[in-house]
Amino acid sequence: MSTDADKRREEDMAVPVDISLSLGEDGDVWIARDEDTGVTSQGPTRQAALENLDEAVAGYHGAGESPTDEELRELGIDPENNESGSIDKSDIFE
């Protein structure tokens, strides 16, 4: 049985603690990085970059839901032929 304290502890794990925040080279975007996980995000304002980082780190820790078949199709992915594989076997990560 989980308690409110357990839920707060789980939520706190997804919130970045050691963060770097910098202005991008072009000066039009802010870049936020969680130094503990290496997760990086960006946004047009500092606040947006930090909010996006919170969401990205939560996803890194497993929060969120798997995309629906319809969402995959909208991205040009055929759910029937979608296979996960090793990064070592991927042409993208050569």
Rank of each mutant, 00 (worst) to 15 (best):
Q47S: 13
L72Q: 10
R73H: 07
M13A: 11
T45V: 00
E10W: 00
G62N: 03
R33E: 01
E55G: 15
E11N: 12
E65Y: 11
V29I: 15
G38M: 12
T68M: 13
S90P: 01
I92H: 14
F93G: 02
E51T: 07
T40M: 06
G62C: 05
T68G: 04
D88Q: 02
R8S: 13
F93Y: 05
V57A: 00
G24A: 07
A58D: 02
V29Q: 09
G43M: 00
S22K: 15
R46S: 05
S66V: 15
D36E: 15
A32F: 01
S86G: 03
D28H: 10
F93I: 01
T45C: 00
G62Y: 00
A49R: 00
E51K: 05
S22L: 10
I87K: 09
S86K: 02
A48T: 10
S20T: 10
I92T: 12
Y60K: 07
D69R: 09
E80M: 08
E35S: 06
G64P: 00
P16E: 11
S90F: 04
V29M: 10
D34P: 05
E65I: 11
L21E: 14
L72K: 07
D18F: 03
F93D: 05
E25C: 15
V57K: 00
S41A: 01
S20K: 09
S22M: 06
V39W: 03
E25N: 13
K7Y: 08
H61E: 03
G59F: 15
E70Q: 09
D88K: 04
S41E: 01
D91N: 15
D69T: 06
D78G: 06
E70D: 11
D34Y: 05
R33T: 08
I77G: 04
A14E: 07
F93V: 05
D36K: 13
V57W: 00
L72Y: 06
S22C: 14
F93C: 04
W30H: 11
E51D: 07
G59R: 11
V29Y: 11
T40Y: 10
H61F: 08
D88C: 05
Q47G: 09
E94P: 06
E35V: 15
Q42H: 13
H61G: 02
K7A: 14
Q47P: 10
P44L: 10
S66K: 08
E10V: 05
A49L: 01
P44N: 11
P79H: 02
G24D: 07
E94V: 09
R9I: 14
T37Y: 01
E83C: 15
D34T: 03
E71R: 06
T45F: 00
D91Y: 13
L23S: 13
A56I: 03
S86W: 01
D4K: 07
D36L: 14
D69V: 04
L53C: 02
E80Q: 07
P16I: 09
M1Q: 15
V15C: 05
V39A: 08
E80R: 13
E71D: 10
L23K: 14
R33D: 02
S2Q: 08
S84R: 15
I92F: 14
G76T: 07
Q47F: 11
R9F: 07
S20L: 09
S22E: 14
E74K: 15
